[in-house]
Design a protein around this nucleic acid. Structure first.
Length: 518
RNA sequence: AGGGGCGUAGCUCAGUGGUAGAGCAGCGGCCUUUUAAGCCGAAGGUCGUGGGUUCGAUCCCCACCGCCCCUACCA
């Protein structure tokens, strides 16, 4: 075992031996603390010196040594725990010869416990007057730079533990993420939902259009797919009488990586029997408002250069959005009637592309032959999607691009489906679930006939069978937790909200013996 | 996949076609209320990797590796 920087690594190993020689255990098993550094700072941060002096309450705290200022026979240091640091004051007279020797064998990054009482220094900083030091664990490798922290993004992702020690901002993001998930559970639990776990290994990947990861089960000798969505299993549960279910877990899609895509990402999916998509839209307004309040304390949330307002959510149909963001100069604005008519969406795309060609605007590029609804979706994505900065519910999606949604009774070319866009990002997708087994089978078969790597090769017969047993009218939705967290923590990249985002592995090393620091 | 950018000490960063620089961290010394503690001293490098041009390359050129951004892909 040997890591860079070798000289410091070896130096610290020697110190660890010296610590043992003093009679301290190298890797002790526990430390009984009374307060975390955070709790001490929060509880006593404002107390005047006289009050601390009067109380002289004994405290025991543990943490990582993150600053060290030895001054002869006394020393100051900071102990970091639960994301906050408290200063400690170590005096030779107080901790004794052996304790002071131990202190001098400590390095930045070491884990220690202290027993003592609170006081204020001359410069009025709340500190622990250390009476006893306990060695807890050695850091054999040095901490990142104390002032600038760790800024190399690659190191921050690969060695997230260092990022979390050095960058409080990063720690805060993941605390916020935990908070979001906690709030979501509270929200759904309080509405009578139950949380379930459905398979993550599927023999037929379904519930979304995406290329799956393939794996193999040895004993059964079958290929399995990491799930691309839990949707079809959750709906089987509504057939089974779980009228309100949700699941929070990972989906896997074997596709590109970007600031908005990680191959594994976390989705919340929930299904509510006897409700429709409008009920969900109303619920979402409440949910988003509540999350914004709980994470950032306001319905106004800063995201990059924007201020997002979660107090209200605009609603637009997809066709309205196209008309609204149709560029001036690109000819006649497409009307509802045009987009509804056979061949209409395609004509609108051609009109737009003519203009795009002249002005160098993004092209609505299609691969292969598209149906009317696909042209409509393409047009929306090209001209409107990135304009939807403020929270927007986009609804009434074409049936052609919504194989699992129920059609609108007055217009079967559209479905009762919506997506929520914020900062130009799709964060939620919900609809009135298609529960007519015959219609569902037709759509699956049509999809398969069309082919493509994103479409299952095989009909999920059991899902159709489940629908044949009767699924209540149900509304269901998926919310991307990673993207939601980005929005509420002002994070520009999905990798900033995933603890260990997927990166190409480091070059292989035969053993830690030859390992270089990254 | 295409385009652009980055890669120098453990970390944060300068720098130049002619023997490689700082701060922090680390090492030795001084210091009993410091705050990015201070002072003195010494050390630390395959300048991502491999080729090429050149008397000479960390610097210029080519290829490769890794990361970031944009585009493409992406329910």
């Amino acid at each position: 075992m040997q890591f860079e920087p070798r000289d410091q690594f070896q130096q610290r190993q020697k110190k660890l031996e010296q610590i043992q020689a003093l009679g301290y255990e190298a890797y002790p098993r526990e430390f009984r603390w009374t307060d975390t550094p955070r709790a001490l700072v929060e509880k006593h941060g404002e107390k005047p010196a006289a009050e601390l002096e009067a109380e002289k309450q004994e405290v025991r705290a543990a943490g990582r040594l993150v600053s060290l200022r030895p001054m002869g026979k006394v020393a100051f240091a900071h102990l970091q725990g639960s994301g906050k640091r408290i200063q400690i004051y170590v005096k030779k007279d107080v901790v004794g010869e052996r304790g002071f020797k131990l202190f001098h064998l400590l390095d930045l990054g070491d884990l220690i416990g202290v027993r003592g009482h609170l006081f204020r220094t001359k410069s009025n900083e709340l500190s622990i007057w250390v009476e006893e030091l306990t060695f807890l664990a050695k850091a054999l490798l040095p901490l990142p730079e104390k002032w600038h922290g760790l800024t190399d993004v690659e190191l921050r992702y690969r060695q997230r533990y260092l990022d979390l020690i050095a960058n409080d901002d990063s720690r805060q993001v993941f605390v916020a993420r935990a908070r979001i998930i906690q709030e979501l559970r509270r929200f759904f639990d309080s509405r009578g939902y139950i949380e379930v776990e459905t398979p993550m290994m599927h023999s037929i990947p379904g519930g979304a259009a995406a290329r799956p990861f393939v794996t193999h089960h040895n004993a059964l000798d079958i290929d399995l797919y990491l799930r691309i969505a839990p949707e079809l299993y959750l709906k089987r549960l509504t057939v089974g009488g779980f009228d309100r279910v949700y699941e929070i877990n990972r989906n896997f899609r074997n596709e590109g990586i970007s600031t908005q895509h990680n191959p594994e990402f976390t989705m919340l999916e929930f299904y509510e029997a006897y409700s429709n998509y409008r009920d969900l839209m109303d619920m979402n307004e409440e949910l988003f408002r509540l999350l914004a309040m709980s994470v950032s304390g306001s319905t106004l949330v800063k995201y990059g250069e924007h201020e997002l307002d979660f107090s209200k959510i605009e609603r637009l149909t997809m066709r309205e959005a196209i008309a609204k963001y149709w560029p001036a100069g690109a000819g006649a604005v497409p009307t509802e009637g045009e987009l509804r008519a056979a061949g209409g969406p395609r004509a609108a795309v051609e009109r737009y592309n003519q203009w795009a060609k002249e002005t160098n605007a993004p092209y609505a590029a299609s691969k292969g032959v598209l149906k009317d609804g696909e042209w409509t979706g393409l047009l929306f994505e090209t001209i409107a999607e990135d304009k939807l900065i403020q929270p927007t519910i986009l609804h009434d999606f074409p049936t052609d691009i919504s194989p699992l949604s129920k059609q609108k009774p007055e217009d079967p070319s559209l479905t009762e489906r919506f997506e929520i866009y914020v900062a130009g990002m799709e964060v939620a997708n919900g609809f009135s679930e298609l529960n007519d087994p015959a219609e569902q089978e037709r759509r699956f078969l049509a999809q398969m006939a069309q082919g493509g790597e994103e479409v299952p090769k095989q009909l999920d017969v059991d899902y159709i069978r489940a629908l044949c047993h009767g699924m209540p009218p149900t509304a269901g939705e998926g919310i991307g937790i990673d993207r939601l967290t980005m929005l509420l923590t002002d994070s520009p990249s999905i990798r900033d909200v995933i603890l260990f985002p997927l990166l190409r592995p480091e070059p292989r090393q035969d053993s830690a013996a030859g390992a270089q620091g990254a």
